[in-house]
Nucleic acid binder design. Structure first.
Lengths: 131, 131
DNA sequence: TTGTGTGCAAAGCATTTGCACGGCT
DNA sequence: AGCCGTGCAAATGCTTTGCACACAA
């Protein structure tokens, strides 16, 4: 299963790096600007390959669409319940948590930590509306 | 928006309590045994209402189907990457984590922590197969 | 009686897949 | 030449919705 290098895959990866937490559709729309003949299935296929290869992280949060995160260091996320945006959280990945669970008999590969709350921007918006 | 009490809702809630991390389909199949005329849409609608009312927790993990957890105390989960089962993890909910994120400017309502790994059963299965 | 909940089928979305064609190697 | 990746459209699977009828209040 050797993987061929294609123009599409290259463009898709480059594009992902330029968008913050994009959905497949975000990626598709953006890629289309430089490469109009792209098909959405191609984006899905390549995004899946990139996830498989560990170059991309898939984040599934309550919402319908999955979003993708291009980063090499693990980190956590917060989803604003008002604007629905997903923010990276500046908190180090805790290996100790994984170790704690391993001591319970599981073999742990990693964990996802997602906070739900309200981001600073939306908090500000709310206080203004109350005035 | 007063909520009516219906036979269906009662049966659905009772049924959920009897299944471990069920999907909507699991609930539907189980309810049908005692109440064959139930419709799947009714299950969806009631499950959503129960989540809205805080009587039920929706857990969305990478997989397509959402599973539901009937519990009042928050806790964490582990999803076995082999058997795909979801396990409750015996680790207390950390309010300190929420507080840490609040100090970063977010208003936090709660967090979800999901581990991915291999459960004891599947580990055992694997060692047996290697023999 | 009055409107909310139900059951059914159809619609909606996100995602995957089948197939013929195009382009690396 | 051989075959993997692409583009399109169709299929899939989970979930929601429209509508007429049933039933709780």
């Amino acid at each position: 299963m050797d993987r061929r290098e294609t123009v599409q895959r290259t463009i898709i990866l480059d594009t992902i790096k330029s968008i913050y937490h994009p959905t497949v559709n975000d990626i598709y729309e953006q890629v289309k600007k430089n490469y109009p003949q792209i098909g959405k299935a191609t984006v899905y296929r390549n995004v899946n390959l990139l996830v498989e290869d560990g170059l991309l992280r898939k984040i599934c949060i309550g919402e319908k669409e999955a979003v993708y995160d291009w980063d090499l260091d693990s980190h956590y996320h917060l989803r604003c319940s008002e604007c629905k945006n997903i923010y990276d959280i500046d908190l180090d990945y805790s290996k100790e948590l994984d170790e704690k669970i391993e001591s319970l008999g599981f073999m742990v590969s990693h964990h996802e930590l997602v906070f739900t709350g309200v981001c600073p921007k939306c908090q500000e918006k709310n206080t203004k509306m109350e005035e």
